[in-house]
């Protein structure tokens, strides 16, 4: 991740410190001096064990909490410069909470998706256009739009809820454990929708998860938190070249990465950074080919 003032950076945390209940005996330090940049048009993953502060970062990005120290910059401007306008920031930084399907409440899926845009004060025509568009991105079929959200299946509900956030057309889309409790197919549908939204609207995407498996597949950059401190951050390839540090942060490395670590212990080095199955398979077969040739020669 680049320099703080680079225009590539959509949203930036600058020396952010945060504690819950500051100045009381119940004070709980959640984040300490975090500086992080989230690039435009890229997917950044925030990984960390339970209690590492990932959910707190989500609340800070969205202006739900105010940092005790440091700043949150959106397009180079402090989001708390005018605290009265923090509501506007929430439309620009869309937040998909954990289990977003629990926030559905309207009579129809259509009404629920249009809740956010309506709160923004858009006209009916624009709202309708956005509803249809976000529903299409999330794979919510046109016929489901007029059903009650409570009649949908679990996966469909979640997609409808995410469409409700996308309909606000946020420039930054923050997702907290978007794949929790879904099967692999449901997971890839959700991530597919998120990537499509990012490309279509040149948005920045931030995914918070404890699963490195998902991170390896969908993220460009990764930041690893450990007990409220930034442990690692950088390009995905660089992060996965140091799997020991991930394990130290209490994270599970992807299966393929731990396989590569075991192979390396036995003297077979696949590559610097291992996180996808296809790439590893190619590398390994090339290695075997090389050895066979060496033996025959």
């Amino acid at each position: 991740m680049n320099d703080t003032y680079d225009t590539q950076n959509k949203i930036v945390l600058e020396n952010v410190t945060f504690a819950y209940n500051p100045g009381t005996p119940l004070e709980k330090r959640a984040l300490e001096n975090i500086s992080l940049c989230f690039e435009r048009g890229k997917v950044t993953g925030i990984a960390g064990h339970t209690g590492s502060g990932k959910s707190t970062i989500v609340r800070l990005l969205n202006g739900l909490e105010k940092p005790n120290g440091g700043r949150v910059l959106l397009d180079g401007e402090d989001i708390w410069a005018n605290p009265k306008k923090i509501g506007k920031i929430r439309f620009r930084v869309g937040l998909v909470m954990q289990y977003p399907e629990y926030q559905l409440f309207e009579e129809t899926v259509r009404a629920d998706i249009s809740y956010g845009p309506r709160r923004m004060g858009l006209d009916d025509e624009e709202i309708n256009r956005r509803v249809i568009d976000s529903a299409a991105i999330c794979g919510v079929s046109e016929s489901d739009l007029d059903r009650s959200p409570f009649e949908l299946s679990g996966g469909q509900k979640r997609r409808a809820a995410i469409a409700g956030i996308m309909a606000m057309r946020p420039e930054v889309l923050v997702l907290d454990e978007p794949a929790a409790g879904l099967d692999p197919e449901g997971r890839s549908v959700i991530f597919g929708a998120v990537l499509r939204y990012m490309r279509e609207y040149d948005a920045s995407v931030i995914i918070v998860s404890h699963s490195m498996e998902n991170m390896a597949e969908y993220c460009d950059n990764i930041a690893v938190l450990r007990q409220g401190k930034l442990e690692l951050s950088g390009k995905k390839e660089d992060i996965f070249s140091q799997p020991e540090l991930l394990i130290k942060a209490g994270l599970d490395v992807p299966e393929i990465t731990s396989l590569a670590m075991k192979l390396e212990e036995r003297g077979i080095r696949v590559s610097n950074s291992v996180f996808t199955v296809g790439y590893t398979a190619d590398k390994l077969s090339a290695l075997f080919e090389e050895r066979r040739r060496a033996k025959n020669a």
Partner: peptide, 9 residues
């Protein structure tokens, strides 16, 4: 929290 970030006031 969820509804607040969808603009509920």
């Amino acid at each position: 929290t969820a509804q607040k970030s969808r603009g509920a006031d």
